[in-house]
Nucleic acid binder design. Structure first.
Length: 586
RNA sequence: GCCACCGUAGCUCAGUGGCAGAGCAGCGGUUUCGUAAACCGCAGGUCGUGGGUUCGAAUCCCUCCGGUGGCUCCA
């Protein structure tokens, strides 16, 4: 159960409610249309979603794109006929009778608690089991469109039958629908997989394998800037940087419990001199080794070990997606070992660090989730209560809105997840802060307290950016490929108008490079127009055109990727402008 | 992994049973140009893989590999 701690203005809430009703009604009209196409179709469920609606069907053959067109035409006809939606309450027996030919509906009815009333909505001949609410009549569904077809397991369970799902969307006006479709197009333009290729940032190769990222020079440069900044920030916040190997003996993973609980995500063992080794899916066991390398005193806690640790996890082929979901990735990982009395301050420190770091990249909006104890869990209830309260206090103390994900915690501890939204409106999890009651136990971690006795430290896993691969993917879409100057692989391109300007252009480029600017000289024997176009497509922030006038005056003709054209500018002024941008991380 | 769709030159794509094509990129040349694509030429492909049907397969069928949109799972 998700319990929201968010507030919305009333007007926005009413609009959302209207869209919700229109989408709900549109999904009924879709199901009605499908039944006309396939009278024997069995209906799954058809709820509204954040951006539209879907409906699941068990049909004799999969839908085709042409089917979508004729179904949509059928729906338009229904809308034109303006048939009223009629609500009624039915008894349980009556409901079972009414939907006797619809096994999925029967299953839903059986799951409705006895004390709840069962309701149906009818328009024309179509009746659906439905809690509602709906718009008054089919003419009031607004502007709608069917979007796509997909397979979906009944009740999301891969052991149950796969139904055919049709996705659609509905909005209060044609304008709002067009807006939405425009947003989808914009999202496609910003797709990190497309930009990744166009800007030559990374690739995946069939020969290397799916889900394994090959960073090209420009992508690698952006990544290394992010990493450098990350390390510097960690040092400022009293983290200790460590490095750990990519594999370890089976004994390590047995002790950690990964072989017991996480093996399906791990690659098979490799044998070395009769011993089994596993490639790491997580960094924690290694950081624990650092902790255990000497006897720890309460005086040295908290200890914060951080590493850009590359891990490999088996992911099913169907879930791989560009940089967002891969098989080999680098976590910006850290493990904090601390005393109980330090826990809350540590969590506050991590959250503060997170927002500080994410703000650097222009992320200001987050979805925050507090995930609590699941049914199957290790650790004492008091520990869970204490840790969960620490997380809650930390979030609330910072005045943040959050959602409680009841029972959504890991088996080894409660956690806070923070998601940022990409250009498609999909929320991507980046930050995660997780308590771990399991590993300190398994590795028998301890510290000597002021009382001279052994105590168990608290352990917190945290990743702020999540994985560099995913974060870069989100960043590419966030900026639409137009990276701010401090991240841009090429910050300035010097463009010659004719070959005779090469000498001056070379001098300009060297001056820029000496000033610490990533400059590139485009001295090709091509027309200036072409070079500007290419720099523009590569989203280079500064273009410095040099011709006769500039060579004579010691200036450059400045052009920005925004299309602004400030014109002739002294080189020194351009350099300081660039340096200001870089310093301000613009 | 499952459902649907897709895979033709580095990229974007045309070709749906009868001699593999275009634009861009690449290479060679001409051109020396003032704010988003100069011109001419050349080269480039076992049509993802393996098998089958056929006189003949990029095209039809099957297998596998990879991708896309979803489902499940997740940083």
């Amino acid at each position: 159960m998700m319990q929201s701690h968010k507030k919305q203005p009333k007007a926005a809430q009413e609009l959302e409610e209207l869209r919700h009703r229109m989408r709900h009604s549109a999904s009924h009209m879709l199901a009605d249309a499908v039944l006309r196409m396939f009278p024997d179709a069995r209906l799954g469920i058809g709820p509204p979603t954040e951006d539209g609606f879907y409906y699941d069907f068990d049909v004799p053959r999969p839908f085709t794109p042409e089917d979508l067109e004729s179904l949509e035409a059928d729906m338009r006809q229904a809308a034109a006929s303006d048939i009223p939606f009629e609500h009624s309450e039915v008894g349980r027996g009556e409901a079972l009778e009414l939907f006797s030919l619809q096994p999925y509906k029967l299953e839903v009815i059986q799951d409705i608690p006895a004390e709840e009333t069962i309701t149906t909505y009818r328009h024309g001949v179509f009746v659906d089991l439905c809690a509602g609410p709906h718009v008054e009549s089919t003419g009031r569904v607004g502007a709608f469109k069917l979007l796509s077809i997909a397979g979906a397991y009944w009740r999301g369970d891969e052991r149950r039958p796969m139904l055919q799902r049709i996705y659609g969307t509905a909005w209060e006006s044609q304008e709002a629908l067009d807006d939405f479709l425009h947003r989808l197009e914009e999202a496609q333009r910003r797709d990190h997989r497309k930009l990744g290729r166009e800007l030559d940032l990374y690739s995946v190769s069939d020969e290397v394998g799916p889900g394994l990222i090959i960073w090209h020079p420009k992508g690698a440069l952006i990544r290394s800037i992010i990493e450098d900044h990350w390390r510097a920030q960690h040092l400022r916040r009293s983290y200790n940087l460590v490095y750990s190997p990519h594999m370890g003996r089976s004994r390590l993973w047995e002790t950690s419990g990964h072989l017991g609980f996480y093996r399906e995500n791990m690659y098979d063992a490799m044998e070395v001199e009769g011993q089994e080794y596993f490639i790491k899916p997580m960094n924690c066991p290694f950081h624990i080794q650092v902790y255990r390398s000497s006897k720890r005193s309460y005086r040295e806690l908290p200890l914060r070990y951080a590493e850009l640790g590359t891990v490999y996890r088996y992911e099913r082929t169907g879930v791989l997606h560009g940089l967002m979901r891969v098989r080999g990735f680098t976590q910006d990982d850290a493990h904090i070992f601390c005393r109980p009395d330090q826990v809350e301050a540590e969590v506050v420190g991590v959250l503060d660090f997170t927002f500080d770091l994410l703000r650097t990249y222009g992320f200001e909006e987050y979805d925050i989730y507090l995930a609590t104890r699941p049914e199957k869990a290790v650790g004492e209830p008091e520990q869970w209560e204490f840790a969960t309260a620490s997380l809650r206090h930390a979030i609330e103390g910072l005045g943040l809105e959050y959602v409680v994900d009841e029972g959504g915690g890991a088996f080894y501890g409660p956690k806070v997840d923070i998601k940022i939204r990409d250009a498609l409106g999909r929320a991507w999890q980046c930050t995660t802060v997780q308590f771990d009651f399991n590993l300190p136990e398994r590795f028998d971690l301890g510290f000597v307290g002021a009382d001279g006795h052994e105590h168990r430290p608290y352990m917190v896993h945290r990743a702020l950016l999540g994985s560099l691969e995913r974060f870069l993917g989100v960043l590419i879409e966030h900026y639409g490929g137009a990276f701010p100057v401090w991240l841009a692989p090429v910050q300035a391109v010097v463009i010659t108008i004719a070959d005779r300007h090469l000498e001056y252009a070379t001098k300009v480029t060297s001056r820029l490079e000496e000033a610490g600017i990533r400059a590139h000289l485009d001295g090709r024997n091509e027309r200036m127009n072409l070079k500007i176009r290419e720099a523009q497509l590569q989203k280079v922030p500064y273009m410095l055109v040099v011709g006769d006038r500039e060579a004579q005056d010691g200036t450059v003709a400045l052009r920005l990727r925004s299309g602004e054209n400030p014109g002739p500018t002294p080189l020194a002024a351009v350099i300081s402008r660039l340096q200001e941008d870089i310093a301000a991380r613009k």
